[in-house]
Design a protein around this nucleic acid. Structure first.
Lengths: 150, 150
DNA sequence: TATTGTTATACTCTATAACTATA
DNA sequence: TATAGTTATAGAGTATAACAATA
């Protein structure tokens, strides 16, 4: 091993954090201004649009949010009439969440904007570079989550 | 252009956020438990170790933190005796921050741990992949910051 | 009048713990 | 007793605005 000197500028966790914050701020501005949505709420909507009916626990897995964040985001969306619930026949402690027609309509508006914003952010990236970045990020994520237990 | 369907799992801003959060949590645990430092404080220490004497404004540029965050982090470090200040002969409104001997000693302890943690996180990455990730992250960051004005 | 830095305030995100209702 | 979900609370990051001191 060649133990390099530490400089913040080349410290990968720092680069990751700074890039992620810049992107999150940009994305969050787009959703909040136009739709009054927080990122956590937007994540739920996206998964609900892909899933039809799903429990909060399942939503948490798919959005990488903990149960508290899911509960809060779901409450806000239900309050706004974008999401509704049904009993979960398989487990009385749980329930099933799904998009209302209003929620589906909102999703229909946001999804193209989300894709367009992503397109702008990665405009200079080739298709290969996008796939590569996706893969590298998944690998770091896995590594960070596994090592956290040790 | 080939307008793909939106899925959260393949949405790059999501992947970036999730990876960054996982890494930040891991890093922040390491600093907080052992040294009682927040990430913002740790960033200041790193830059101070690289810079000797520097104004808060300059620190903000190098750490990508705004003046409020710099002010708070600096206060905490001064309180702990890790950082000290001198007048800025060039501008009476400002001052110069620098590490005390205690601050330097702490930096000497943390720096190897930071590098080791980074090494663990990116253990499966080749040197080329690390450089590539660094470059891709810088490009997204630039893109996100520029576009935010529009 | 503009700028450096501090303080007050608030909003978001995340995490811990206590609680409820079901299993 | 264990689990699904909610609520309370707090810590940390980030942002706006008001302010003091200096340029």
């Amino acid at each position: 091993m060649n133990p390099r000197r530490l400089t913040l500028d080349r410290f990968l966790p720092y680069r990751l954090s700074v890039a992620s914050n810049a992107v999150s701020t940009r994305i969050s501005n787009a959703y909040r201004k136009r739709f009054g949505l927080r990122i956590s709420e937007w994540r739920l909507i996206t998964i609900l649009a892909e899933s039809d009916r799903i429990t909060p626990a399942n939503l948490g897995e798919k959005t990488r949010m903990d149960k508290i964040a899911v509960s809060r985001a779901a409450s806000a969306l239900i309050e706004r009439g974008l999401v509704s619930t049904d009993d979960n026949p398989a487990d009385g402690r749980s329930h099933l969440l799904f998009l209302t027609p209003e929620g589906r309509a909102l999703y229909g508006e946001i999804a193209p904007i989300a894709l367009a914003t992503e397109g702008e952010l990665f405009a200079t990236f080739s298709a290969e570079e996008r796939v590569l970045l996706d893969m590298l990020l998944r690998r770091v994520e896995t590594s960070a989550l596994n090592g956290a237990k040790a």
